[in-house]
């Protein structure tokens, strides 16, 4: 299992051809209290950089983009009733969706945890 981050603060945890996608601690803190998450339909195909989900805080709506492409195999239905999970545990219970990865080469160019930490410190 490896974890990768985008400059837009999504993460993807990869295990074989399964990727779990969510938003980072940094993003969850920046957004503030999450009140709604719109998740894609299971079976939807998305390319790298496509809109994968929408996360709404009290103030505003923000798009979450697919770090790499794939087919949606599962979404975190618990977020429907408990969107606050995104704030409580963004890199755990607050995950958004799982995909079947279409091309693992797309992971190249994403940041590992150390590189992402350095990136956030520079913001």
């Amino acid at each position: 299992m490896s974890i990768h981050f985008t400059e837009d603060h999504e993460w993807i945890a990869v295990d074989g051809d399964v990727g779990i996608i969510g938003i980072s601690d940094y993003a969850a803190k920046a957004l503030g209290d999450v009140v709604f998450v719109e998740l894609p339909d299971v079976g939807a195909e998305m390319g790298k950089g496509d809109e994968a989900a929408v996360v709404e805080s009290v103030k505003a709506a923000s798009e979450v983009y697919a770090p790499i492409g794939g087919e949606v195999t599962e979404v975190n239905g618990a977020l429907e009733d408990e969107p606050a999970k995104v704030n409580e545990d963004p890199q755990g219970d607050g995950w958004f969706l799982k995909i079947k990865i279409s091309d693992a080469d797309e992971l190249e160019g994403l940041m590992d945890e150390a590189a992402y930490k350095t990136y956030c410190e520079g913001l």
Partner: peptide, 11 residues
Amino acid sequence: VQYPLGVLGEH
């Protein structure tokens, strides 16, 4: 726009 309490808590 908000303090450490957060928009929800402040409201």
